[in-house]
């Protein structure tokens, strides 16, 4: 496997050109899009992704820094989307939620069908208003991790990452109901 393909594999979610798409075994002509790579790495949308590379024996944060980091031979190690402060505390043990993937055959087959990602635009009051945040922000406090950088998919890429304080204009949607007294 050349380094470039390997790199594409290791991106949590990234842009890709055709050379980075891989064939789907048993489905002629079909290629894996990166959305499907993203889906493959988690049980359902919202479950923590598994770790797609082997155990380097290093601390996760030595590569998955707050801005992410490009790793020779492997590609871009994206930052965690979690609150950077809590990453020093409550969430400092990454492997509490993220475990290594392997090729082990299943212990028993499973029929579970999980929730899939449903990318949708946040609602706007009018064409010029900033969209609200259309997803939960719990554990996704670091907007930049997914919405900027090489790991960001085109549809959700932020056009103005220099305005760092996202929630100043984009409000997390707490309820779908209306206000009433």
């Amino acid at each position: 496997m050349n380094a470039r393909i390997l790199a594409a594999f290791l991106l949590l979610a990234a842009c890709g050109d055709d050379s980075q798409k891989t064939a789907v075994p048993g489905v002629p002509g079909a290629v894996k899009t990166l959305a499907s790579v993203r889906a493959e790495r988690r049980l359902f949308d919202g479950a923590p992704p598994v770790i797609p590379h082997h155990d380097f024996g290093a601390d996760c944060i030595s590569c998955h820094t707050t801005a992410g980091m490009s790793v020779p031979q492997f590609g871009f190690a994206p930052p965690a989307p979690h609150d950077p402060e809590q990453l020093q505390g409550a969430m400092s043990r990454c492997r509490m939620c993220h475990v290594f993937a392997s090729k082990e055959p299943a212990f028993a087959d499973n029929d579970f069908v999980g929730l899939r990602q449903d990318l949708r635009a946040g609602k706007r009051l009018n064409d010029l208003a900033p969209p609200v945040i259309p997803h939960q922000t719990l554990l996704r406090e670091n907007c930049m991790a997914c919405h900027t950088g090489p790991a960001a998919r085109e549809e959700i890429r932020c056009p103005h990452p220099e305005r760092e304080r996202c929630v100043q204009c984009h409000l997390p949607q707490q309820t779908t109901g209306e206000f009433s007294r």
Binding site: D17, D18, T33, L34, L115, R116, Q117, D118
Partner: peptide, 16 residues
């Protein structure tokens, strides 16, 4: 890279 990414399906019937 980004041009390719733009083609990804974004609506999913198994949505939230």
């Amino acid at each position: 890279d980004c041009a390719a990414a733009r083609d990804l399906p974004i609506q999913d019937p198994q949505g939230h």
